[in-house]
Amino acid sequence: MMAGNRISFEVMRYTFIIAALAIFLIPIVWMTTLAFKPVAEWTTAISEITWLPKNPTLGNFEFIFTGQTDELIITMPNTATMPIIASLVIASLGTLIAVVVGTLGAYGVSRFQVGNNLPLSVLQLRLFPPMAVMIPVMMMWSYLALVDTFWGLSLIYGIVTLPFSFWLMKTFFDEVPREIEEAALVEGCSQWRVFYRVTLPMVKAPLATTVLFVFILNWSDYVIALLLTRKDWVTIPVYMNSLNSAMTGEMYGSKAAIGLIAAIPPVVLGIIIQKHLVRGLTFGALKQ
C-alpha cells in the first residue's frame, strides 16, 4: 500500500519534471540548432521543419565574424567582434564599479551605523523602471559626452547593479562575527586595516560570488545599452537585434548564432554560482 503510493509519486514526479525540462529546453534547442542551419533552412514551410539541421554549417558564425559567407550575397560592415569586446569590457567595468562602491558602502553601513537610509535608497534604484528616468539620464549622458562610450555605459551599469552588490555584501558582512575584528582592533590595527586585512579576506568567496552575479546582470542588459549606445560601443543584445538586412529581411540564423554566443557566459557563470543564486536574486534576504 505504502510502497504503491511511493512508486506512483515517483512516476508523477519524473513525468512532471521531464515535461518541464522538455518545455524549458525547446526554445534553447531551437535557437541552438538554428544557429547551425544554412540559409535555405532558416524559414521553410511547416511540413519541412526539422529540429536538427539537415546540412549543418558554421556559415552563420562565419558571417557574423567576417561579414560575409558563401551562402549569402550580402556582406555586413559591422561584425560581431566589436560588440563582443564591448559587452565584455563594459560588463566587467560596470561590475568593478558596482562591487567596489557597493562593498565599501556595505561595510560602512554594516559596521559603523552610518547612513541609516542608505540601504533603502539603494534598493529604490531597483524599484524604478529604467525607462522612467531615461530621458534625464540620456540628457545628462550626452551633456557629459558619455553616450556611446564604454565608460559612460559602464558607469550606468555600475549604478544600476549597485543595489545587488551593496545588499549582498551587506548581508555577508553582517554575518562575519565582530569578535574577530575587535580582536584585531585591540591589538592596535586601524579600522581601515582591519577591513582590508581581516574582514575582506574572510569574505573572499562571497565577494567572488557577488562579482559573478553582478557580471551576469550587466551582461544581460538590453534596454540601457539600447538607449545609451549608437554604433561604437553597442553591446551584443543591441547588435543582435539590429541584424536585419533590407535585401534578405530577417537574418534568422546569424541572429541565432550571436544569440547563442550571448547566452553561454551567463549560463556557465550561473551554474558556477548556483548555490548562491537565491541569495543574489533576493538581495541577500534568503539563503539556500
Partner: peptide, 8 residues
C-alpha cells in the same frame, strides 16, 4: 564609515 559610504 562616512568615507566608505561616500561613493555610494
Amino acid at each position: 564609515g562616512r568615507w566608505m559610504t561616500l561613493p555610494t
